[in-house]
């Protein structure tokens, strides 16, 4: 017994370790499976293991006009929503980062509400408003919806960085003779730029992949997720769907990984305080 419960302060028990690694594996297996299936030669069932591997389906997918159409619509929506979100989210973050005024808490809640409430609420609410105002769904209504929740993402990223900045950097800059604009340019911007970029990338990825709100605001427009969703119920071109899945993963993950590296706590910033 005395050897069994030897005290090792920096070692997790085998139970915690096993649970942690098993959990991590659980989170990744489905993603690997999807990538594997994009190369299967089987085009009828979800048979496992795949009988053979091929690149043929990529060629087929790239030849499909409907996929290209949905893809370019999704990219357009994501780009527009991201630009709007960058402007609105950054403004809101700068306004609320330090100022103190009576309605501040309510505003802070308002600016995170679109992601705190389930997406379906935003979706059905936008639809209800469109019905009330007799607005027809279009690309514009999709962008309107996406920009709303994308703003929250940018706001969260930028305000988190602003709150980490010591208040006296701004004071030090003004003390040394810099006015508001110079302080913004030389002190705040270099510090906030990466959070701003990261917020934009996350917003882009989120918009590119969004379906829950989009279904309500899209009408007859087909973004890539909507195309994908329809395929799930009419699985005629299973192999093509698999390929599109891999493409979607690639398009969303690249900005996500970049965003992660942009917001990683920088040793230099941490110790300089």
């Amino acid at each position: 017994m005395p050897f069994k419960e030897r005290y090792r302060p920096n070692k997790a028990s085998w139970l915690v370790r096993a649970g942690a690694f098993a959990g991590l594996a659980f989170m990744h297996i489905p993603v690997f499976i999807i990538i594997l299936y994009a190369f299967t030669t089987d085009d009828r069932t979800y048979r496992f293991p795949p009988p053979g591997l091929t690149l043929r389906w990529f060629e087929v997918a790239f030849g499909r006009a409907d996929i290209w159409q949905s893809m370019s619509l999704s990219l357009l929506v994501a780009a527009c929503a991201t630009v709007i979100a960058l402007i609105l989210g950054t403004l809101a973050a700068f306004a609320l980062a330090r100022a103190k005024f009576p309605a501040k808490d309510s505003l802070t809640v308002l600016f995170v509400l679109p992601i705190a409430l389930p997406g379906i609420i935003t979706g059905i609410a936008l639809l209800a408003a469109m019905k009330t105002l007799r607005v027809d769904p279009s690309v514009l209504t999709i962008i309107l919806g996406h920009a709303t929740f994308c703003t929250v993402i940018v706001y969260n990223n930028v305000i988190a960085r602003l709150r980490r900045l010591p208040a006296n950097w701004v004071e030090a800059s003004m003390d040394l003779g810099a006015d508001g604009l110079q302080t913004f340019r030389y002190v705040l911007l270099p510090q906030v730029a990466t959070a701003f970029l990261a917020g934009g990338m996350l917003a882009f990825a989120l918009s590119f992949d969004e379906i829950i709100v989009t279904i309500f605001t899209a009408g007859k427009e087909r973004t890539l997720p909507i195309w994908f969703f329809n395929e799930l119920f009419r699985p005629r071109d299973r192999p093509v769907t698999n390929v599109v899945a891999v493409i979607v993963i690639a398009v969303t993950l690249i900005p996500i990984v970049l965003a992660y590296y942009l917001t990683r706590p920088d040793d230099e910033h941490e110790t300089a305080r």
Binding site: H28, P30, Y46
Partner: peptide
């Protein structure tokens, strides 16, 4: 490892589970 699956396409993940859970 936790962030990547969280941000991987929502629909694709559901689709993956359809493949995983299917009869065959």
């Amino acid at each position: 490892g936790v962030m990547l699956p969280m941000w991987t396409s929502y629909l694709v993940k559901i689709y993956a589970w359809r493949l995983l859970l299917a009869k065959e």
